[in-house]
């Protein structure tokens, strides 16, 4: 599903899998035009993920920019690990690599924001929906945003990656550096929390 809510086709990405090794080589050779092409190909999707995670368009752009600069820096090492002509080069997925970086950067920023806030830090992570977020979501367009924002960071990432971006569970687990079973458990809890929050939202109307 894309920004407009339509499903995201995976076919073009698969067709570009082999070509991404060539992009990585051009990036390693400091080809700015290659960076533009990567931004044109993956930028919108990464920005969408970051925006759904943070709810802030400017911060989402910062996250995507940071991910692209990390790709710029790490390109020589990526090329070294995926030598041309090998099976590793054919399996190189710059999109997946960028997705993982963006997800982790977004989680880090959410945690940093929570630490710097004046709110009292709970002893343990509270999985229940935040009522104040639900109360503040007045407009229709921001109701979905409030539902997502009420989730803890990793649950939020699980919903964004699987529901909005329609990634398979395995790819979403890889983006979060988790094994599949742990991710499925996390996704299950995220959906349950989301339903509880939605029920609370509906009940408060």
């Amino acid at each position: 599903m894309n920004a407009a809510g339509t499903p995201l086709s995976q076919a073009p990405q698969n067709a570009l899998a082999g070509a991404e090794a060539a992009w990585a080589q051009r990036l390693a050779a400091r080809d700015a035009e290659a960076l533009r092409e990567v931004i044109a190909l993956h930028g919108a999707r990464l920005h969408r993920t970051a925006w759904r995670m943070t709810g802030d368009a400017q911060e989402a752009e910062d996250i995507v920019q940071e991910a692209m600069l990390r790709l710029w820096d790490q390109a020589p090492r990526i090329v070294q690990r995926h030598s041309t002509g090998s099976g590793a080069a054919a399996g190189l997925q710059l999109g997946g690599w960028l997705q993982r970086v963006v997800t982790n950067l977004a989680i880090d920023r959410l945690r940093r924001t929570r630490r710097m806030s004046d709110a009292e830090v709970p002893d343990r992570e509270d999985d229940s929906p935040r009522a104040d977020a639900l109360v503040e979501a007045r407009e229709e367009g921001s109701r979905a945003r409030a539902l997502i924002a009420a989730l803890p960071e990793r649950q939020r990432a699980a919903i964004v990656l699987t529901y909005y971006e329609e990634l398979p569970n395995a790819e979403a687990a890889a983006a979060l550096d988790m094994n599949l079973k742990a991710f499925e458990s996390l996704l299950h809890r995220a959906r349950a929390s989301l339903r509880q929050a939605f029920a609370a939202q509906e009940g408060g109307k």
Binding site: A3, A4, H47, A57, E140, G141, S142, R143, R145, L147
Partner: peptide
Amino acid sequence: ALSAGAVPP
């Protein structure tokens, strides 16, 4: 509810 709202470009 989740599909409501548009992502800014």
